Amino acid sequence: MDLRIFTEPQQGATYDTLLTVAKATEDLGFDAFFRSDHYVKMGSVDGLPGPTDAWITLAGLARETKRIRLGTLMTAGTFRLPGVLAIQVAQVDQMSGGRIELGLGAGWFEEEHQAYGIPFPKERVARLEEQLAIVTGLWATDPGKTFDFHGTYYDLTDSPALPKPVQSRIPVLIGGHGATRTPRLAGQYADEFNMPFASIQDSERQFGRVRAAAEAAGRGTDALTYSNALVVCVGKDDAEVARRAAAIGREVDELRTNGLAGSPAEVVDKIGRYAEIGSRRVYLQLLDLSDLDHLELISSQVQSQLS
């Protein structure tokens, strides 16, 4: 089971804070550092000092880390034109030496679009399908050849399809709870399907839909890696769990139900139950980025039991 650290910088984090957490992620043996792609805070936090851009952040981290993989859960398809996104991600992959992964979603948070003047079209999922075809098509085009795409929303003619990433194929992540379109897109385009903030039962049901969609697309039921994203709150004892829950404005009982909370043994047991239904990777949503002792505890007493 791979454990990856997943951050939500829109809630309030500087680049330096993210760099500190990313370096701790690497030093403590975690598999990857991922971040969200949002421009406006959510909930009652003040969000200061303001947002950081996902791909600018990852470009910086690509030069300041050596081993961990880096990526997004999920890049908002509404924020960037697909041709531009393909260039950005390929460049950051070059900067990292081939450690980048792209989580790409339709975009959903209308408030941030209004706040920064970003169009919020109704047909976001249909646009996402064309975006996936374009981004993956550009990367897959042989050097010296050109790429064309003529869709409903995007039109590319004689694209040189450059630059190329270091990796022969940058892993593409698709995720979500949708029962029909999401599995179909994942079955066709994804290397990994991520089920965010979902129960074991709901995850198993959605994994089954994606496996069926992958088989229908001619890829086979085991063509994808299946993963979960879950908030994490681990403590050596009940008092430490309660302190960490309070620091992120959550209740312990709710976290135990909806996330990974409790003692290291409790968390290892729950991760094991996700593994039983086919999950091979867990993105640990770390909400208190100042608590590096939390990361150390997860590394030494949770991750060590899963390797």
Rank of each mutant, 00 (worst) to 15 (best):
D293E: 15
D291C: 02
L286F: 06
P171N: 14
G97R: 04
S304K: 07
R250Q: 07
T20G: 14
G259H: 02
G187C: 09
T136D: 11
R219Y: 14
E251Y: 06
T152V: 12
L58P: 06
Q305Y: 04
F193I: 10
V267N: 01
G144R: 02
L104V: 00
R124A: 12
R69L: 12
T136F: 11
V84D: 12
C233K: 05
R256H: 00
E111K: 15
Y226M: 09
R256G: 01
D16H: 14
S307Y: 12
H38T: 01
P196Y: 07
Y226A: 12
A190P: 07
V267Q: 05
L102M: 06
E26Y: 09
A106M: 06
G47D: 04
R219V: 13
S36F: 13
R211I: 14
E123Q: 15
R99E: 14
L70R: 06
F33M: 13
L61P: 04
T182H: 08
P160D: 00
F30C: 09
L85N: 10
T221D: 10
A245Q: 04
Q114L: 15
V84G: 05
D222C: 11
H113P: 06
G12L: 01
H113D: 01
E8T: 14
I298N: 02
R127Y: 12
R124Y: 04
I118T: 11
G105V: 01
G50I: 02
F109C: 06
S199K: 00
L81D: 14
A247G: 03
L260D: 02
L292G: 03
Q301W: 07
Q88R: 13
L128E: 05
H294W: 00
A24L: 13
A265S: 08
G83D: 00
R256N: 05
D253P: 03
A115F: 01
S168G: 15
E64C: 02
F34V: 11
F34A: 10
P121G: 10
I118D: 11
Q167F: 13
E296I: 06
A24W: 14
I56R: 07
I68D: 01
P183I: 05
R181W: 11
T257D: 11
G272H: 05
G29N: 08
D27N: 14
F207W: 02
F120M: 01
A54G: 02
R184V: 14
Y226T: 02
I277L: 06
H150C: 04
A242K: 13
A246H: 08
S44G: 10
Y274T: 02
H294F: 01
E215T: 15
Q305N: 03
I56G: 08
G107N: 02
R127P: 03
W108R: 08
G83C: 07
L295I: 05
T78L: 11
F207S: 08
L156K: 11
S304C: 01
R184Y: 08
F79C: 02
I68A: 00
Y154F: 15
G218H: 12
R219T: 09
L287C: 09
W55P: 03
V268F: 04
T65Q: 05
G97D: 10
E251V: 00
P82I: 07
A140F: 13
A179R: 15
P82M: 09
A86E: 03
A13I: 03
A90L: 05
P163G: 12
D53A: 12
L58Y: 06
T146F: 01
A126F: 06
S36K: 11
L102S: 09
